[in-house]
Amino acid sequence: MTEAVLEVRGLNAWYGRAHILFDVDLTVRRGEVVALLGRNGAGKTTTFASLMGLVPSVTGSATFDGAAILGRPTHEIAGRGLGYVPEDRRIFTDLTVDENLMVGERPPRDGVPHWTPAILYDLFPNLAELRRRPGGHMSGGEQQMLTIARTLMGNPSLVLLDEPSEGLAPRIVEQMANALNAMKREGVTLILSEQNLHFSRLISDRATIIEGGRIRFDGTFAELDAQPAISATYLAV
């Protein structure tokens, strides 16, 4: 078994007075793709935001590449190689596609794939045609591709990918799945937060289900399929 890139133990998080996460544990090994599954409001986004230092009030521990990251400033966590693709994309709308990539650019990192605009434009051919277009003048799917590419420019050892298929048309979701699988073949380690079980199954090695701010299940998709009650309770309507 390869080494763990990320180990989260007993993570609790609050927004103001609302207690959102309860003792969340999470382990991700190098080269692995983990699906973090849950409905709206289950705590997926808060988990990512907590790891990125964007939630002021957290307790517990999180070790990323051997360093404790909880409570550290966001830029330092990102600088260590933890990539973050937020759910709301947050493209720099005034900046062109090229410039958006430039903001994400970091020096190469040992042991993880090194990304350049040329490689990324191969991976996301749509973007290659729009290099000089401002981010604000792109469709939702294109923005989603751009925000992933922008994060990859930082040569991250682990990417937190928040609901990449959300609000996208089926055709685009398909392209997204292909691109994510290509990333995986390049050796990118991922946590993929999703509501969409089928989509995540196409890409992920392992499933972790979060509901009500707690981890309810952690195992392979085969194990999940063996217990249909679990996805019925925590994911379906």
């Binding site: 990125m52 966001t74 830029h75 330092e76 990102a78 947050r90 720099f92 900046l95 994400g104 970091r106």
Partner: peptide, 24 residues
């Protein structure tokens, strides 16, 4: 310049710039 692009990005969304590893 990259510096200029970072400045424009920070003008629009400081948090995201930090989440991309830039020390503001």
């Amino acid at each position: 310049t990259r510096w200029g692009v970072l400045v424009r990005a920070a003008t629009e969304d400081r948090t995201m710039v930090a989440a991309l590893g830039v020390n503001q």
